[in-house]
Computed example of a mutant assay.
Amino acid sequence: MTDIYDQAAEIEDMHRRIALENQAARTAGMAAVSAYECEECGEPIPEARRQAVPGCRCCVDCQQIEEHKQRLMA
């Protein structure tokens, strides 16, 4: 019988694989269009960030906050 830790590891692997596949699909051909304004705070997203991170939706500060929240939930 598989224990709960093995099941959790399998689920984590599945989520990681899905996230990587989604990221690859978003960046395929670099066709993703970046937002001009942050979806969180409404501030303009600098052109350098828009070019460096195709498809970005948030400014650097809001992206860092979002990533911090995700790490806390993991």
Score class of each variant (00 low, 15 high):
G42N: 10
R57K: 15
R49G: 01
A8T: 07
D61C: 06
C38G: 08
A48T: 11
C56M: 00
C59G: 06
I18S: 05
A48C: 04
E39T: 12
A48G: 06
R17K: 13
V33N: 01
E67M: 12
A24M: 06
E66Q: 11
E40P: 00
A74W: 02
Q7V: 15
C56T: 14
E21G: 14
A35D: 14
C62I: 05
E12Y: 11
Y36H: 07
N22H: 11
Q7C: 06
C56N: 06
T2E: 08
C41Q: 06
D6I: 09
A8N: 03
C62V: 02
C58I: 08
A25I: 11
R26M: 08
I45P: 02
Q23S: 11
K69H: 14
D13F: 03
Q7N: 13
C38K: 06
D13N: 10
A25L: 13
R16G: 00
H15V: 11
R49P: 01
V60D: 07
R50Q: 12
E12P: 00
D6L: 13
Q70L: 11
V60R: 10
I45G: 02
A32S: 08
C56I: 15
A74Q: 12
R16H: 07
A31N: 06
M30F: 00
A52T: 00
L20Q: 14
Q70E: 06
C58A: 15
A19I: 02
C58S: 14
V53D: 04
H15L: 15
E39M: 14
C56D: 02
C41M: 03
E12S: 13
R17H: 09
Q70W: 01
N22V: 13
G42Y: 03
H15K: 14
E37P: 00
C38V: 07
G29H: 03
P46R: 10
D6Q: 15
K69F: 02
G55W: 01
Q7H: 13
M73V: 12
R50I: 02
Y5G: 04
L20K: 15
A35L: 11
M14A: 15
G29A: 09
E37T: 13
G42D: 04
I4A: 12
E47M: 08
P54Q: 03
G55Q: 06
